[in-house]
Computed example of a mutant assay.
Amino acid sequence: MDNDMISKKDLLALTGISYGQLYRWKRVGLIPEDWFIRKATYTGQETFFPREKVLARLEKILQLKDGASLQALADVFSPSPDNTSLTIEQACAKCAVSPAVFEVFASYLDVPMERDTPLGFDTLLFVRLLEQLLKEVDVDEGRALYTLFRTQYKAFQNKPCELIVLRKLGVCIGLFVRTPFEAVFEEDARVVVRIDVTAECEALKLLLL
């Protein structure tokens, strides 16, 4: 069997969880339905999982399950947005984003942003993305990417997606893509940033638990 996959039997043995736990977590949405992959083997039909994804997910569940309800954890692992609202000061403390990035983000807005300005989940998510983007793009390019995020992200936010930034002849091009994603580009175009937005969404929800 492909090393990228792990059988249900091996998964249960490796993690120490029970069959009942596995399927209970599936029912409440902690483990996606499409990770349960039925394959024919010499012993008949068996269930397999994408190894890295499921092991990482189960590790997080086991770490968090005693401190949060299963429904709260299901909300964390859902790609849907959260209803959380934080001020900039709270966000700097909880979301591991530097005040300098909020200053850059504030320059993209038409209204002033104070330390006690409430920020919704999508805004907090973009600021986390911007922290990574500014390592490879300039402030004006970040502004264009904010426009992309503001106008197009809602069409992608309920599905696994990535934010990809290409550069060709010095020009920055941003795009959202649904995952899994594979593509080839022209020789003089290169990927300068590739961010798993679903993973960032999940990480932000974990910080806000």
Rank of each mutant, 00 (worst) to 15 (best):
I61H: 06
I88R: 15
E52G: 05
F102C: 08
K154N: 06
T84K: 14
D140T: 09
V139G: 05
L166T: 08
I6A: 03
A68D: 01
K159H: 12
E136H: 14
R167Q: 15
N158I: 02
L58T: 09
F77C: 04
K26Y: 02
V192Q: 02
R57D: 02
G120H: 10
K26A: 06
F105H: 14
L22M: 12
F176Y: 09
D66A: 11
P50H: 07
Q63A: 14
R143C: 05
G120C: 12
V127K: 10
I37S: 00
C201T: 15
D188K: 14
F156D: 03
Q157G: 00
L133H: 11
K9P: 00
F176W: 03
V197D: 09
F185W: 11
Q132P: 00
Q45G: 00
L148F: 07
L204F: 13
A203T: 15
V137C: 12
T84E: 08
L58F: 07
A96Q: 10
D66F: 02
V177T: 10
T123S: 10
L73F: 05
L130M: 10
V104Q: 09
T47F: 04
T123H: 02
L11H: 06
T84R: 10
T47K: 03
G29R: 04
P180L: 05
V111D: 04
A199C: 01
Y42V: 12
A72G: 00
S85D: 04
L207C: 12
A56M: 05
D34G: 00
Q71F: 11
F121C: 10
Q152G: 01
E200Y: 06
A72W: 00
V171Y: 02
S85L: 05
E131C: 01
L209V: 05
L12C: 03
R178S: 12
G142Y: 14
S78T: 07
G170N: 00
Q152V: 07
R27Q: 14
T147P: 00
M1G: 10
D122K: 15
K135T: 15
P160M: 05
V192T: 12
D188M: 06
K65T: 05
S18P: 09
Y146I: 07
Q21G: 07
L208D: 03
P160V: 07
I6C: 03
L22C: 09
N83Q: 15
L206C: 07
L206N: 01
I173R: 14
K159I: 07
D2H: 06
A40L: 13
L134T: 10
R57A: 07
E46V: 06
R24W: 04
V54E: 09
A91P: 10
T87N: 09
Y146Q: 11
E89A: 14
R167P: 00
L166E: 09
P32E: 12
R27W: 00
I6V: 14
S80G: 04
G142P: 12
L209P: 03
S85M: 09
V139H: 08
T43M: 06
E182K: 06
S78G: 06
R150C: 05
F77M: 04
I88G: 01
D75R: 15
G67T: 11
R38E: 11
V171T: 08
R143V: 02
T41Q: 01
R51K: 15
R24H: 14
V177S: 10
Y108A: 09
R115A: 07
E182N: 06
F149G: 08
K65A: 02
